[in-house]
Amino acid sequence: MRRFLAALCALLGFAAPALALDKVTFGTNWRAEAEHGGFYQALADGTYRKYGLDVTILQGGPQSNNRLLLAAGRIDFDMGANMIQAFDSVAQDVPIVAVAAMFQKDPFILMSHPNAGYDHFSDLPKATAIVGNDALVTVYQWLKLTYGFSEDRVKLYTFNSAPFIADKASIQQGYVTSEPYAIAQQGGFTPNVFLAADFGYQSYSTMIETRRDLIEKNPDLVRRFVEASIIGWYHYLYGDNSKANALIRQDNPDITDAQLAYSIAALRKYGIVDSGDALKLGIGAITDARMKAFFAQMVAAKLFKPDLDYKKAYTLSFVDQGVGLDLRPKP
């Protein structure tokens, strides 16, 4: 309809009036960082505007919960951390649906000291594990079931790495895009990094989520936001991301250029965004097979009951169309 009106005005000799943009608010799950880069890129380079969207990015943080704002109808989209959250929404009868998976690999890692007897993943269960509460009741339950980790060896991670740095017989959780950099800066050594996704943990991460009623009432708006965000991620990974990083630093003045550069390099190196099914289906890809496999993992780890209708947690309607594949550099 937009294109028709513009063409009609041109034929009649009128100047086409500026069409109103749809206002959209997208809430992230933490303070602005490279892990949000594709969304900031789509804002900075005008991709959202090209898709008829006036997007506001509402950054998260320790004192905010944008997922609750989404459920309450205060914002339009949010960034889900992983599929456990999405499955839990179904279990709690919260009408939130994942519409894209911007990270094909969950960035959760375990780190160990080099040359301390923990240089292989099979060594890690015998170490003291410094793990946060959220990880303990989610991914660590999978680690227990699959690799024999024990809660008897767990110490609480309070987002202070000093205990890990001081204890060579310990391992610590983190994200591949951030904690290894912090350890190198604070501890003066490069830790061993073990990405759980590379050892069979199948959760997607950095989901775009919205409410079921918005999908039903305005699927075109959902489609445009998802597709523009996908293109933003291609440009952020493979193009000029300087304007996006400037916006990130504007929202989060504490982040450094060095941290941003490290995180972007890690996103590329480990295939966090563009790997697996995304290589053929495009960034944001979701498949039923992957969802089924991950749900089975979580049932086995006793996080969910097997009769949960987990397919309500996501939809394939807005992804897997190859959007942006032409933007990936040719090998």
Results as ranks from 00 to 15, higher is better:
residue 2 R to H: 15
residue 6 A to M: 13
residue 8 L to M: 15
residue 9 C to R: 13
residue 10 A to W: 15
residue 18 A to W: 04
residue 24 V to T: 05
residue 27 G to H: 02
residue 27 G to L: 04
residue 29 N to P: 03
residue 33 E to K: 03
residue 33 E to N: 10
residue 34 A to K: 08
residue 40 Y to V: 00
residue 53 L to W: 09
residue 55 V to G: 12
residue 71 A to G: 10
residue 72 A to V: 01
residue 73 G to E: 07
residue 74 R to V: 11
residue 76 D to M: 04
residue 78 D to C: 10
residue 81 A to M: 11
residue 85 Q to L: 11
residue 95 P to Q: 01
residue 112 S to P: 13
residue 113 H to M: 01
residue 118 Y to S: 00
residue 126 K to G: 07
residue 132 G to W: 06
residue 133 N to Q: 13
residue 140 Y to P: 09
residue 140 Y to G: 05
residue 140 Y to Q: 01
residue 143 L to V: 04
residue 149 F to D: 05
residue 149 F to I: 10
residue 155 K to G: 09
residue 158 T to Y: 11
residue 161 S to K: 13
residue 162 A to K: 11
residue 163 P to C: 11
residue 178 S to I: 09
residue 179 E to V: 13
residue 182 A to R: 14
residue 190 T to W: 10
residue 190 T to H: 11
residue 194 F to T: 02
residue 197 A to Y: 02
residue 218 N to Q: 04
residue 220 D to Q: 09
residue 226 V to S: 06
residue 228 A to W: 10
residue 236 Y to D: 00
residue 238 Y to D: 03
residue 240 D to G: 05
residue 240 D to L: 04
residue 243 K to M: 02
residue 255 I to H: 00
residue 259 Q to G: 05
residue 267 L to F: 00
residue 273 V to R: 06
residue 275 S to V: 09
residue 291 M to P: 13
residue 296 A to K: 14
residue 299 V to M: 01
residue 300 A to I: 06
residue 317 S to I: 00
residue 317 S to M: 05
residue 318 F to V: 02
residue 329 P to G: 05
residue 331 P to R: 05
